[in-house]
Design a protein around this nucleic acid. Structure first.
Length: 290
DNA sequence: AGTGTGTCCTGTGTGC
DNA sequence: TGCACACAGGACACAC
């Protein structure tokens, strides 16, 4: 599933096709994703111009010209692909039931066509993703966004904030950083990577992080996210950029999915271990992460 | 309130 | 090849 860098990459990939464009047709192929979709969802998208596309945490926000905001969470396997010249790539085996040329893949749940001729497809095999329509002005107070912590790449996320957010927490730092109220947008991969960079064990109790460790951790989080965005988002299995290309940040993971391999930290003799915390894999170096 | 666990869903990889 | 099982980027709904 996409974490913040992947969602940011998706937003950037969607902008040329969708920002300022009019949705000529919305083909909704099932009534729900993880949750039921809004009433008359496709009809409410059709004819609307997308004024602006943005990201908050792992949410994609599309501001529509009637004031509603179309919100998407990609869940674990959700992805958008953009075909700017769809008609030119029609192939045999087409099963499009309306346009006649559209090739529908399994788990394609929403297909948009813009007046400019782009085709944007939302595909989500596991269907952990979700979409909603929010009223103008109600985005920040919506159930999705109201409790989110600061954006990790913003100035609001600093050692002082993290110290306050972790105060008194008895949960492991790994779980605390996955809590979107503490900081918004981190997931399993980048928490592992940031803790590796900061030299902090994922098992460390969160309330012992404030102080010098927090002052290492905050820049580590910012650096690993910035590097991943720069690389175009990562991809282990399901993530694709909107162009269909794989992100390549996975080639520079230092901890995630590297169980049993030598620690890459210069001078460190450790071997990456995998443990399970609250049902999810954590990868870390026991030698330099304390 | 804070914290840990189970759950939604499908696909893929591994080992027998 | 077939089959069973573990595991996968999230976060909600519970139980304690």
């Amino acid at each position: 599933m996409p974490e913040l860098p992947e969602v940011e990459t998706v937003v950037r990939g969607l902008r040329p096709a969708l920002e300022g464009r009019v949705i000529a047709r919305a083909d909704l192929r099932r009534p729900d994703l993880r949750f039921p979709l809004p009433a008359r969802f496709a009809e409410r998208l059709e004819g609307r111009r997308i004024v602006a596309l943005s990201r908050r945490a792992k949410y994609i926000l599309a501001e529509l010209d009637d004031g509603e905001v179309w919100l998407t969470h990609l869940g674990m396997t959700g992805r958008f692909t953009v075909d700017a010249a769809a008609g030119a790539t029609a192939t045999s085996g087409q099963v499009g039931h309306n346009s006649g040329w559209a090739l529908i893949e399994p788990h394609d749940h929403l297909i948009l066509e813009t007046e400019a001729g782009a085709r944007v497809v939302f595909n989500d095999a596991r269907r952990f993703g979700y979409m909603d329509l929010l009223p103008a002005g109600g985005v920040e107070t919506s159930k999705h966004l109201k409790d989110l912590g600061p954006e990790p790449l913003s100035g609001a996320f600093d050692a002082a904030w993290l110290t306050a957010a972790l105060a008194g927490k008895r949960t492991p730092i790994k779980a605390a950083l996955l809590d979107q109220k503490v900081v918004a947008g981190l997931g399993n991969i980048y928490v592992c990577e940031a803790l590796w960079r900061a030299g902090i064990s994922p098992k460390r109790s969160a309330h012992t992080v404030p102080g010098a460790r927090a002052r290492r951790l905050v820049p580590a989080i910012k650096a690993v996210l910035a590097a991943a965005i720069e690389a175009g988002g990562s991809s282990l299995r399901d993530y694709r950029q909107t162009s269909g290309e794989l992100g390549y940040f996975q080639h520079v993971w230092d901890a995630y999915d590297r169980e049993g391999t030598p620690c890459r930290k210069p001078g460190c003799a450790g071997v990456i271990r995998r443990i399970v915390q609250s049902g999810r894999s954590s990868f870390y170096c026991p030698a330099h992460q304390r």
